[in-house]
Design a protein around this nucleic acid. Structure first.
Lengths: 234, 234
DNA sequence: ATCATTTATCGTCGATTGACGATATAGATT
DNA sequence: AATCTATATCGTCAATCGACGATAAATGAT
């Protein structure tokens, strides 16, 4: 029951800004590659995602700068402040990677639904529900940075609606009128896959079962459960 | 996409340790109630749970001391350091509240399984999966304080085994030999209830559906899905 | 080559951090 | 009421924080 280094961290490794006898040295500068403003911004953004997802949104800008191999001051040439940097990370790395084509594929009734769902969640798990994505998402949610409500409202809402509609069609069932209730049914599958990812990546579950096999089981359980769900509602 | 105050926080409200002209005042002490060492320790422990679950494990000891109404120095009379305090919180507030009687009730075959599961998860959701519990659990997991693996290995493991065994008995099915596979089946229900709590408490989902109703749906879906899960495994 | 412009670092500021030595005082015991 | 001791607070330290003004140097245009 102890953190790996201290308690969280992301402390600097004390790079050579000081000499051995701990006196600041004068005049001597680190040699650096010069990049265009846009390139540097992109590089920092990429590192920032890895960095904040690993150490949390409270991690220090100095340590991020070290990870980028640039001075801390330079971060403030690319972004006005720390909060703006974090917002940029959300846009590009949280909401960004979701593929619109998934919506189309999920609705393609020429393919059996079970296969569509297995395919989708296999890709979703590998592409979106990565360790880094989840960590950043959770750090932000805990900090009450409104990442999760936005993501859910913008993207997951539509996803749930599609899944439930397809499942009801396949089962030949009539869905409840309430959109909330319908989406809650969709969460039976989506929530389980999400929680699987949380277990593996965040809780550090050591289960060796291949993910695709587990996903297959979840999809089967969901599809078999749809009629009972509808019945349990009344 | 912005935190409520700053980025996380738990900053001090600047209590009156300094006079208006910002000079430290001398000789004057805050009036306090004196408590026995054990009582004070217990009081700090209680506040520390609320406090760290709200602001994270990186929140400051000064702010915690303010919340307790004592000086920051006093925390270090009750606990040797911050990490020891956090460990004490885990023991008393994360692992502590799980009730051993739940295991007994879950195995009571004189009650229909569906009812046992609804009953158990209703109580589990209200007692364990609270906002505070979840927040602390997640903060700790993200900080790689080994809270989740310990909790899962010590408690949830047994819970999953019981649930799956009871479900298989009710369905008259033979379970797979692999313990990992059996537990993964149990996660289909347990993970969904856990994720429901994460959605409501952490992601701040505004769905108004009563929790007990949703739990009922999850239990129904799980029980209906058991045969398909077993079938999907081969 | 000279110079202008952009890209970079240095060095520092004021506010916080966890930790703890020095010291005051409430409350029990006598 | 004098004394003692456990229970408090004060005040400070060294290390970090986010932020930014001052300044150096790499690059491209002429």
């Amino acid at each position: 029951m102890q953190a790996k280094s201290d308690l969280l961290a992301a402390k600097r490794q004390d790079t050579a800004t000081k000499t051995k006898d701990n006196k600041p040295r004068t005049g001597q500068r680190r040699s650096t590659t010069r990049m265009s403003a846009a390139d540097r911004r992109a590089q920092i953004l990429g590192k920032a995602f890895e960095f904040f997802s690993e150490y949390g949104l409270t991690a220090q800008t100095r340590a991020l700068a070290d990870a980028c191999g640039v001075s801390q001051r330079l971060l403030y040439s690319a972004f006005p402040n720390k909060a703006a940097l974090i917002n940029a990370v959300y846009e590009s790395d949280i909401a960004g990677p979701f593929k619109a084509i998934w919506f189309v594929q999920l609705r393609d009734r020429s393919v059996p639904l079970e296969q569509r769902l297995r395919q989708f969640y296999g890709e979703y798990y590998d592409t979106i529900l990565t360790r880094g994505w989840l960590r950043l998402f959770l750090y932000a949610s805990l900090a009450e940075v409104e990442m999760a409500p936005t993501y859910i409202a913008d993207i997951i809402r539509d996803l749930l609606d599609i899944i439930v509609e397809e499942a009801a069609f396949e089962a030949g069932m009539t869905l409840p009128d309430s959109p909330e209730l319908r989406r809650e049914m969709g969460w039976v599958l989506h929530g389980n896959i999400s929680h699987l990812a949380i277990r593996r990546h965040i809780y550090n579950d050591k289960t060796t079962l291949p993910v695709q096999r587990v996903i297959t089981m979840h999809v089967a359980a969901f599809l078999a459960g749809v009629p009972s769900m509808v019945a349990s509602i009344d």
